[in-house]
Simulated assay, not measured.
Amino acid sequence: MRVVVDIPSELVDQIRSAIEQGNYAGPEEFLEQALHTQLRLESDEQQTLMSFSEAVQPRSQEVEQSSFGETLASEQTPGTNEDSSELEDLSVRDFDVLTVDPPSPSRIDTGPLWGQYNRILPMKVSVRRLAIELDKAGAGGIAYDEFREQTAAVARAYGHKLKEIDKEAGRGRGEKFSAGFPTGDKVESSLNRFKTHFVGQIDSTGSLTGSLPNLQFVNISPSTREFGLSDAGLDFARVENPVLDQSLRSDNPLSESERRFYLDHVNSELHAEYNAMELVAEAIVGGVNRPDPLSERVAELSEDWTSAQASTIRSGLIGRMNELGLVSRKRVGTRGVGYELTVDGERELL
């Protein structure tokens, strides 16, 4: 598609300078890279762009909220200094939970995980909280709407604290622990995305959407509209996490035990996801280590994906693989990015 836009002359000069320095093959590559970078930023931060009127309106008028989840979330703002003691306790404990069967393949997407499910730590928050709520209730299911709203609100509170710590630690875009959490300024949209991507959603036909159903960690009953934990989900909830069980200022978002559990589970139960990780690893080792060429390689996994869909899938794979310690990012040129396979990645995937 050809699109004509007006660009300020000072930006044109800066673009020309970057191209002359050899960082980009031409203006087309520069603009495409800039667009991909902005889209990844929006995906990582789980937020949408605001209109001018939305940006300048008083924060108290941002969204009218009455439910527990939305009210709690609206009270948490970026940059607050709440201590972890003010957050809901999600530490591991001796769970006594009735588990349910995982969702049948006909109700979920059995391909590689969608690119918006780009981090594992937000998944862990939802799984751990579901285990806690089921343990407290002494039941096999928790009400659908209530759990989604409250979990998104809890995740928003955690996300803001992690975002503050990310800034203090100087973490770059691909390294932020707060990525995937609903910290966007447009509260309702941010919370809704988290509910869909990292808690789970059921439609009128009983089909499920979200990372947790697709990973077979949770199921949602179409008859009772309740969340339940599978055996695998309960086992994942029981594995210690450095952020939730030790300190929000931990150096790693996942423990070694969590990484091992996740990889073994995916290898056993989600063959398409594991195969996609192997393809990415082989491509990187073979020199296909930049975003666009790697997206083209990922597109080989499905003839039905558009280039934009393949790019989204690639972005999600890289995000999760980086969190698992399988892939690292490196700077290429002034603003470009490349990928390297770690020693753990070579051992696990090659």
Rank of each mutant, 00 (worst) to 15 (best):
M277K: 13
D6H: 12
R249A: 00
P105F: 10
M1V: 14
A169G: 00
S91E: 07
L208H: 12
L324W: 06
E86G: 03
G287Q: 06
P27K: 13
R2N: 07
L215I: 08
A137K: 14
A143S: 12
S211I: 15
K161H: 02
G336S: 06
R107W: 10
Q309P: 05
N252M: 04
H271F: 09
E278A: 10
E300W: 05
F198T: 00
L270N: 11
S189C: 03
K330M: 11
V280D: 00
V125G: 07
Q57C: 03
E303A: 13
I313E: 14
L254K: 02
K176R: 13
P242K: 04
S85D: 02
D83Q: 10
H271G: 12
N214L: 07
L191S: 02
E75V: 09
E269Q: 02
L301E: 12
W305S: 05
R171I: 02
T205L: 08
N252F: 04
R347C: 08
L130M: 02
E149T: 14
D203A: 06
D109H: 05
S204A: 06
G200Y: 06
S295I: 04
S67Q: 09
V239Q: 08
V239T: 08
T71E: 10
S106C: 08
T48L: 10
D235E: 13
R260N: 10
Y339A: 04
M321C: 04
E296G: 01
S74E: 10
A153E: 02
V199N: 00
Q150T: 14
V187E: 01
V187Q: 10
R249L: 00
F177G: 01
